[in-house]
């Protein structure tokens, strides 16, 4: 591969890696909204919280792999508790109450993080086995970024299998479509809601751990990636996992190739893309009008 082609391929890989991070984050958000109708404005904060938990687990155990296991689970449990003891109580008061509550939770987490870990960037090292570069056909690419792509694909496949090949998935999809009908069939919909909320926050947690070694961990992490994830959900269509995947990858590629070819415009390409899509499909690419 000549150097120019290698550069273009590398840019494509960067786009894919960033897109998959966005997908991990956005999929939880879209899943929660699609099923429960809750726009969880604390979602990106869970992502940040998980990155901090990852830092802490590594500080205690020295193992990134344990952190990858524990931090998202703890984040998911916090998500479950939030749904069970707070969101469920304000649900009866409509979306405004839920929005305000999630904003409040976001602020509480943000301030708590500062109290526990301070405001500075905290280092998370890439595990030894994932350090370094892979060289193939004249292209040098970081192993860790390939790991992110692989991890996201595995989670995507598992999620798809659960959603489309299991009874639980069927219930979830049915609840997305018509929660009242599922409830009438005797299924414990609040429990399903709680589970979905937990899985959604768990996915944000996985994204948080995955990005921690690349971005360093600091209180602004949520702001940095949260807006991009929100664009993915809006453009992909609220509630659409497929839409989130497609748009996340498009956004990642727009970002990397934008930098390559129209550097000055790169930061706004994602917004231009969002505007164009919403002009023609106001509910997003795969969103359905209620």
């Amino acid at each position: 591969m000549d150097p120019v082609t290698a550069m273009y391929v590398a840019q494509g890989m960067h786009g894919l890696a960033y897109g998959m991070i966005l997908f991990l984050l956005a999929s939880g958000l879209t899943l929660i909204f699609g099923m429960m109708g809750i726009l969880n404005l604390a979602h990106a904060t869970f992502f940040m919280l998980s990155a901090y938990l990852c830092y802490q687990v590594i500080a205690w155990t020295g193992s990134f792999w344990l952190a990858l296991l524990i931090a998202p689970i703890v984040t998911g449990i916090i998500g479950v508790l939030l749904e069970r003891f707070l969101l469920r109580k304000v649900h009866a008061f409509g979306h405004i109450g839920e929005l305000i509550l999630t904003v409040g939770v976001s602020l509480v987490i943000l301030e708590s993080v500062k109290v526990f870990w301070g405001t500075e960037s905290l280092p998370v090292q890439i595990p030894n086995v994932l350090q370094g570069l892979v060289t193939a056909g004249g292209l040098d690419y970081p192993i860790y970024r390939l790991f992110i792509i692989g991890l996201s694909l595995v989670i995507l496949i598992v999620l798809m299998l659960i959603l489309y090949k299991t009874r639980l998935g069927m219930v979830v999809r049915a609840a997305v479509s018509d929660a009242d009908m599922v409830d009438a069939l005797g299924i414990n919909v609040p429990l399903v809601f709680m589970l979905v909320f937990g899985v959604g926050t768990w996915m944000a947690g996985v994204a948080g751990v995955a990005i921690a070694p690349i971005l360093t961990v600091f209180p602004g992490l949520a702001d940095q990636v949260g807006m991009d994830a929100f664009i993915v959900v809006v453009v992909g269509g609220f509630g659409s996992l497929g839409g989130a995947l497609l748009v996340a990858i498009i956004c990642g590629l727009l970002n990397s190739y934008g930098v390559q070819f129209v550097s000055q415009l790169a930061p706004v390409l994602m917004y231009i893309f969002m505007a164009i899509v919403l002009v023609f499909k106001p509910m997003g690419l795969f969103g359905e009008r209620e």
Binding site: M7, Q11, D223, Y257, G258, V259, A266
Partner: peptide
């Protein structure tokens, strides 16, 4: 010569250009 947005997430595309 490149200028990136403030609080950028992914520097990899810029760094690839630097390398090239």
């Amino acid at each position: 010569e490149d200028y990136h947005k403030l609080f950028l997430t992914d520097f990899a595309p810029y760094l690839t250009k630097v390398k090239a």
